[in-house]
Design a protein around this nucleic acid. Structure first.
Lengths: 206, 206
DNA sequence: TGACTAACGGAACTGGAGACCCGTTATGAC
DNA sequence: GTCATAACGGGTCTCCAGTTCCGTTAGTCA
């Protein structure tokens, strides 16, 4: 909608516009955590945010777009990776970060909602790809450092290892519905290392 | 809705009722494959199926319920596991089965839709858990057989190995959006075996 | 082969999500 | 300060997904 006018917030990003955005995103996060994706209603969110519903429809238009914006904000406030000096320590930290994110009462529902929306909305899918690309890029160096230390083969694909750590956690959250606990996170890190040592993530060795 | 009357199809499952169900599920699958989950409209599906829209609303009520029923039917027509005599052969076959399912023009969109719906609908989530439980139970024996042959430790958790094979494929489909090809499937099987051999899926060894 | 009724289907109805109109507020440039 | 206009917001309307009503069709059982 309103394709012929400039993106709101780009010409007057100060004061009120920023306050409105913050209030709406806050309210949207609250509704998502409290009532879930299925009960998100833009008019209700507008009221909670103390903002006119016209404003919400004009700036976001759909629940999907609003949830995507929520993810975008989360990317910006993403935590930096940790350094422990060992691959198991680093990948374990990554696995626990993913676990914490997916089970957090605010972030968990957000991720479920975003992933659900991404299955049918291309903009959301693109935002999600950007998020994982950033996360993987952030953590991949720990595999390169481990390769330099000789913990895994020199030609190990770092990004593939990071993906291998996250995958089991997402599988449980979204598909099988099996419990998502610290044991699972820990095992995911160890399994990825075992596979890497066996050369499974080394393109050369086939 | 209509909670006080018997489940349609239970008292007169023959003839017309079965034809209506088949026609509607067929049409729903077509719409899902052609236009996607977001464009599924019960009235449209009813028309395509040559059935009254009242009937569709009475028997399914929501797009989510209809998609869940579609999954239920798929479970019943699920392929049996294959036997190759080696763990790599068996797990490779499982990985290719998952890959084929997720990239199939009809089944792929169905799985995306069901998983999206399962994030906010408990009935769909339950149906999905049943599906994976059945799949894992079907394939777990191949790990036990491999353990008997000495390919992996005796106390390897068979179900955990099967989950480890599927996980990377689902992660790519739903989260990262990375391409889903045979190489990925092959690597998933190999990685699971490497982890199992290292004792990561053996509860005893910690 | 007829009676009973589960299940279907056309048509009219309704509620509320989302679009629209237009006056108001307050940001940013001078 | 003052002006132009980006952005907000209350009120109203529209449209269609989902419901209801009630007559029709066809399984099932005797």
């Amino acid at each position: 909608m309103t394709a012929d006018e400039a993106e709101p917030g780009t010409l007057r990003p100060g004061g009120r516009t920023a306050r409105v955005r913050a209030a709406v995103l806050r309210a949207a996060g609250d509704v998502l955590a409290e009532r879930g994706f299925a009960h998100m209603d833009l008019a209700d969110i507008a009221q909670r945010a103390g903002v006119g519903k016209t404003t919400v429809y004009r700036r976001w238009g759909t629940v999907t777009a609003l949830v995507t914006d929520l993810l975008t904000e989360m990317i910006e406030s993403s935590l930096p990776r940790t350094y422990t000096g060992s691959l198991l320590g680093d990948l374990g930290a990554h696995a626990r970060l993913v676990h914490t994110t997916l089970t957090d009462p605010r972030q968990g529902p957000l991720f479920k909602a975003v992933i659900a929306a991404a299955t049918y909305d291309e903009r959301t899918a693109a935002a999600l790809r950007r998020f994982y690309d950033a996360r993987i890029t952030e953590w991949a160096p720990c595999v390169r450092e481990a390769a330099a230390r000789g913990e895994v083969p020199e030609d190990t694909d770092p990004r593939e290892v990071i993906r291998a750590v996250s995958a089991p956690l997402y599988y449980r959250l979204l598909a099988s519905g099996d419990p998502l606990d610290e044991t699972t996170a820990d095992r995911a890190a160890k399994a990825a290392i075992a596979a890497a040592r066996a050369g499974i993530f080394s393109p050369g060795k086939r």
